[in-house]
Amino acid sequence: MAELTSVLNGHRLAAPQRALPSVLIATRHGESTANVEFQLAAETGALTVPITSRDADIPLSLHGQRQAHHLGRWWASLPAADRPRAVWCSPYLRTTETARIALAQACGLGAVPVGLPVRYDERLRDRELGILEMLTAAAIEKEHPAEAARRRKMGELYYRPPGGESFLDVALRMRSFLRDLCEEEDGRAVLVVSHDCPVLMLRYILDRLTEPQLLELHAVRNCSTSLWRSLDGRLRPEHWNSVSHLD
């Protein structure tokens, strides 16, 4: 954004620069046990998944733990100025495990100081699905056909399941989160550990996407990295949904 100026007594006065982190990196948690079960259900058309815990308590799978280790090594490989010195994290178990493992790996490689704090923020939690929570696609079609039809008609951006959130509801809390993050982490590199929908909404907000542009995006991959860099008063995208570090 061009520098804003005002004129006072014939002099041009530069407005204060907007507070921004130097680098913002967003990642989705590593593969969870629910990711495994719902993928299997999608492939088989199953009506149920063997998950009894609440969504907030779902842990990483063993593969997800390995992905978090790779994320930590990628963190350590960044140029010194780009290595996050602050971590903001969803309070759900699968995200806290991802942050803990990645941070321990980065610390072990000497990339960040031991004891770097992790800040947990409820606005980074996963999208709430209300009556559709923990239901497979086949179960939604069978048990809530009217909701399935309404979802198709309205589109994911606007559809809000009873008791749950639409994408735009998540966007509202992410806008609030970004305001606080920018003010508190001005000039620092930051890592955000969250879920697929909140990370999508970060892209939607920061890159000023339209609905069609948003819906064209692929799902956010587990332990992928998306990076924005402060430039000309805005956070501008450098890469999106990259998993090259997981190879």
Score class of each variant (00 low, 15 high):
131 I>P: 06
139 A>Y: 07
218 H>A: 14
207 D>H: 13
239 H>L: 13
30 G>W: 10
61 S>P: 06
156 E>D: 10
80 A>E: 08
214 L>E: 11
61 S>A: 02
196 D>Q: 15
108 G>L: 07
68 A>C: 01
178 L>F: 13
162 P>C: 08
195 H>Q: 12
232 D>A: 13
183 E>I: 03
60 L>D: 00
108 G>E: 04
125 R>T: 07
95 T>L: 01
177 F>G: 08
38 F>Q: 03
209 L>F: 07
221 R>F: 01
117 P>I: 12
192 V>Q: 01
102 A>G: 01
233 G>D: 05
188 R>A: 04
110 G>Q: 06
18 R>Y: 02
120 Y>R: 06
214 L>V: 10
167 F>Q: 10
163 G>R: 12
21 P>S: 02
36 V>D: 07
245 H>T: 11
186 D>I: 12
111 A>Y: 03
191 L>W: 07
140 I>L: 12
145 P>A: 09
176 S>D: 13
227 L>F: 05
224 S>I: 08
77 S>A: 09
240 W>C: 11
19 A>Y: 06
51 I>L: 15
30 G>M: 09
139 A>T: 09
173 R>S: 04
113 P>R: 12
25 I>H: 00
218 H>W: 00
56 A>N: 02
66 R>T: 05
102 A>P: 00
148 A>Q: 13
107 C>N: 11
25 I>T: 13
237 P>S: 06
203 R>S: 12
89 C>M: 04
50 P>Q: 01
165 E>C: 14
85 R>D: 02
73 R>G: 02
109 L>S: 13
106 A>N: 07
10 G>P: 01
49 V>S: 03
236 R>T: 06
136 T>N: 06
35 N>D: 11
189 A>E: 01
121 D>W: 09
197 C>E: 03
157 L>I: 14
133 E>L: 11
19 A>R: 11
108 G>N: 06
5 T>D: 00
123 R>V: 13
3 E>I: 01
19 A>V: 10
137 A>I: 11
187 G>M: 04
160 R>K: 14
61 S>E: 02
176 S>V: 14
198 P>G: 04
202 L>F: 15
3 E>N: 03
138 A>G: 07
208 R>C: 14
68 A>T: 02
97 E>S: 07
124 L>R: 05
240 W>A: 09
1 M>A: 00
158 Y>V: 14
157 L>V: 15
86 A>E: 00
144 H>N: 08
138 A>I: 03
44 T>D: 01
5 T>R: 08
175 R>H: 10
69 H>V: 12
228 W>Y: 10
102 A>F: 02
104 A>N: 04
205 I>Y: 02
158 Y>E: 11
224 S>R: 09
29 H>R: 05
155 G>H: 14
109 L>M: 08
123 R>A: 10
15 A>E: 09
168 L>T: 06
129 L>R: 15
53 S>F: 02
149 A>L: 15
159 Y>F: 15
49 V>K: 02
112 V>C: 09
21 P>R: 05
238 E>H: 10
136 T>E: 06
98 T>P: 00
135 L>A: 05
57 D>C: 02
114 V>E: 10
207 D>S: 12
88 W>H: 11
154 M>L: 15
192 V>N: 01
28 R>A: 12
33 T>Q: 07
153 K>H: 13
217 L>G: 01
62 L>P: 00
12 R>D: 00
246 L>P: 01
224 S>V: 03
170 V>M: 13
37 E>H: 07
237 P>A: 03
54 R>P: 00
84 P>H: 04
25 I>W: 10
